[in-house]
């Protein structure tokens, strides 16, 4: 056999492998859609609480819980992650501390997410006594998102040319003026992309929230934050993936249909978030030409 045909065989094999992987993705979506079809198009599914009766159970409390928890997670990860990224990229570059932080962050991103759950259970739930609350969940997911945010912040800062910094310093700008007037505005799009990617990962994260003891049977909504912020933070919660896990692990098939519908909703949200970040990245490439 000559080398051309070997090459052809290799290409066919590789494309087959790619197709298998993409087919896998496609069949997951199809399976969820077909199994959960009856519930997905039912308005009641989105407006009712979990229930003993599969036909009446819905994801209202899970949707609202996801919203609150993710708001907390975004807050913590941005407030802690973006400044840390700025420090590492701009100010601490060659120092020992910066290198330590850097190695540490790359290690943290490889720690299994369930370990974060144990950390949250041991520290936030029991030692700090936050309980199994929205506050704990937000903090936990925030820490989980932190490495992604730090890394993308650094990457988008790196794309800004030195001339900008030198120009600002030459005009007498202080460090914070440089950061707030120049670096942050120019890198905002990149940071936003990173935040959205981090959200799309964290929104499907189940393990760390299971460990801190998220309840699955929540038949009430947490008080809205503008009425009682503290109560809201202390309120027990459930989120979409946990609700889905609960339904999958029940033996009755009717609950599996609910799980499929919840999974499909989750999948669509993730797909949307990913497309937005993809679009943003594309727009960004066009916006700045250094």
């Amino acid at each position: 056999m000559n080398y051309k045909s070997w090459e052809k065989i290799f290409s066919i094999l590789s494309i087959l492998a790619l197709l298998i992987v993409l087919l896998f993705l496609f069949s997951i979506a199809l399976k969820l859609f077909l199994d959960g079809m009856h519930r997905i198009f039912e308005l009641k599914f989105y407006t009712s609480f979990p229930s003993r009766f599969p036909e009446e159970a819905g994801i209202l409390s899970a949707l609202v819980g996801t919203l609150y928890v993710m708001a907390g997670a975004i807050f913590w990860s941005v407030v802690l992650g973006v400044p840390a990224g700025i420090y590492l990229e701009e100010f601490g570059k060659k120092g020992k501390i910066a290198r330590l932080i850097e190695a540490n962050i790359s290690n943290l991103s490889a720690v299994p997410s369930i370990i974060y759950g144990l950390l949250a259970l041991g520290i936030f739930v029991y030692r700090f006594d936050f309980g199994e609350s929205i506050l704990t969940a937000g903090l936990t997911l925030g820490l989980l998102m932190l490495p992604v945010i730090v890394v993308t912040t650094r990457e988008s800062l790196r794309r800004i040319p030195r001339a900008i910094r030198e120009g600002a310093y030459a005009l007498g700008a202080t460090n914070y003026e440089l950061v707030f007037h120049h670096l942050l505005p120019y890198s905002l799009g990149g940071i936003l992309t990173g935040v959205i990617i981090a959200i799309s990962r964290a929104i499907g994260e189940t393990a760390p929230l299971l460990t801190i003891g998220a309840l699955t049977f929540i038949a009430f909504l947490p008080p809205p934050p503008w009425e009682n912020f503290i109560e809201m933070l202390k309120s027990p919660f459930t989120v979409l993936p946990i609700q889905m896990f609960n339904w999958v692990s029940r033996p009755q098939e009717a609950f599996h249909k609910n799980a499929a519908a919840a999974g499909f909703v989750l999948l669509v949200v993730c797909l949307l978030l990913n497309s937005v970040s993809f679009y943003l990245r594309y727009k960004l490439r066009k916006k700045y030409h250094w």
Binding site: I28, G204, A259, A260, L267, C270, N274
Partner: peptide, 13 residues
């Protein structure tokens, strides 16, 4: 996107 699919969905599948 395959990387962003929630793990609980993979579990269901």
């Amino acid at each position: 996107f395959l990387e962003a699919v929630p793990t609980v969905v993979y579990g269901y599948f």
